[in-house]
Nucleic acid binder design. Structure first.
Length: 407
RNA sequence: GGGCAGGUGGCAGAGUGGUCAAUUGCAUCAGACUGUAAAUCUGACGGGGCAACCCUACACAGGUUCAAAUCCUGUCCUGCCCA
């Protein structure tokens, strides 16, 4: 029989960092029973495979799931293969576009791999909700729909905002199905606890209702604060482009972290690292730059290991504090045929090195003095000037830096 | 089904026959300053060309015109009101 830490200790861990818990009393009850009977709680977290990148925003609830796992409970991951086709309206001011089955299928695989960096997926249950919704007939859908009312749907903030906006923003009927589907997932897997961001509260609560209807004990809904993205304003998200992906290279993760506004550091430390509160306070009281480097190193260590973090940090110092070149930089191979007499026109070089998307842009950047090359950071006189190119030449444009290989 | 209002660059939102590759704000990129932060200032911001100029673009398809984002017809889509 599995054994668990004392109930009150578990509660302390679980509630740390949580935004809202519906309800703590229910949670205590479930934990107590679990402790007494040696039965792990089933902790649900759902993710819709709507893109290729799992980002740090997703990891906030995932890290909570990891804590549950560490305490001995069972994570149940719902891969929203069915729900992704609908699109979650939560926190949205417009409809999401549903995805095609092919896209969903492709995304689901890469998602799991990325989620595995946060929780031990071999000891978790992974359930695509297409497994049950795929078997549904129209009468099943009708039955699910009859569980709620238009009034209750309109109560939710996302919808009422869209409804009242002038001009109003469409609310499609299928979007109303989403919370019901998510709620039904809880019935299927008999969830004890469901995790989500604060904007998920409505959806999570629907699960409670549906479970009650099905004669199950309602799940505990645990919401985590929403992580703001690199811009320090908006919720981290794919569409806004303010995210740091868990699968990104160490250097990217570190660089993006260094560029977040200072005011965001506390939030990120608290939601993305395991640092004890006292240490966070000490770091934040010190030099912001040092604190941010510590934050970046924490994040990189988690996904790429401490060695990678040390390497990235060393490169950072080299590049920005000693104004040199980092050891690690991307390489771009340019065809030898482009080189005439050992030289290439500046604009052409910028394009070939993929530092700019078009000749126009390349020319502009060269004219702006954003481009330089070689150890002396030579700037060409203008876009037409010929640049001597040898294998291994380092070229820079703004903060982008690339080593050129001849091929 | 009927009436009305709309669909413009990543977003918001001007533009109602040539002066429009399209004002402005946000976002983005770059330069200066810095801690690759913030704030501030400056510049850029469809593609090809050194350039004259050419090509593509203002929901989609046609049409009128020397000339269309702008006018006409049809299609698709959205909102509001009525049923």
């Amino acid at each position: 029989m599995p054994t668990f830490p004392p109930v009150e200790d578990q509660l302390t861990t679980i509630l740390r960092g949580a935004a809202q818990t519906e309800t703590v009393a229910d949670l205590r009850k479930k934990l107590t029973r679990s402790f007494e009977t040696g039965t792990p709680l089933r902790v649900k977290y759902g993710i819709d495979p709507t893109g290729f990148d799992v980002h740090l925003g997703h990891t906030v609830p995932l890290r909570k799931l990891r804590q549950f796992q560490a305490l001995g409970h069972t994570p149940v991951l719902i891969i929203g293969t069915a729900t992704a086709a609908v699109g979650d309206p939560s926190g949205r001011d417009e409809a999401r576009k549903g995805l095609t089955p092919e896209q969903i299928e492709a995304n689901a695989g890469t998602y799991l791999k990325q989620i595995a960096t946060v929780i031990d997926i071999t000891k978790a249950e992974v359930r695509p909700n297409g497994d049950w919704f795929g078997k549904w007939g129209f009468t099943d859908v009708l039955k699910l729909l009859s569980r709620t009312t238009v009034q209750r749907m309109l109560e939710r903030d996302d919808f009422s905002k869209r409804f009242r906006a002038d001009p109003s923003v469409p609310i499609y009927l299928h979007e109303c199905l989403y919370p019901l589907m998510q709620g039904h997932d809880s019935v299927e897997i008999r969830a004890d606890v469901e995790l989500g961001g604060t904007e998920q509260l409505f959806n999570l609560m629907v699960g409670r209702d549906l479970q009650r209807d099905a004669g199950q004990e309602p799940q505990v809904c645990l919401t985590m604060p929403i992580l703001r993205g690199t811009d320090g304003e908006k919720k981290m998200g794919k569409s806004v482009g303010n995210y740091v992906g868990v699968a990104e290279p160490a250097k990217e993760q570190f660089g993006k972290t260094m560029r977040i506004p200072d005011g965001l550091m506390r939030e990120w430390f608290e939601l993305l690292t395991d640092r004890p509160p006292a240490e966070i306070e000490t770091l934040l009281a010190g030099k912001p730059n040092e604190a941010k480097k510590a934050l970046g190193a924490d994040i990189v260590s988690f996904y790429h290991g401490t060695d990678a973090a040390a390497e990235v940090l060393a490169d950072w110092r080299k590049q920005f504090e000693e104004k040199g070149d980092p050891d690690q930089m991307p390489e771009v191979t340019i065809p030898a045929a482009e080189v005439v007499g050992g030289e290439v026109p500046a604009v052409r070089l910028v394009v070939l090195a993929r530092l700019a998307e078009s000749n126009k842009e390349a020319k502009r950047k060269v004219d702006e003095g954003a481009f330089n090359y070689g150890p002396d950071r030579t700037k060409p006189a203008d876009g037409r000037a010929w640049v001597p190119v040898a294998d291994g030449l380092v070229v820079r444009l703004g903060r982008k830096i690339v080593r050129v290989r001849l091929g």
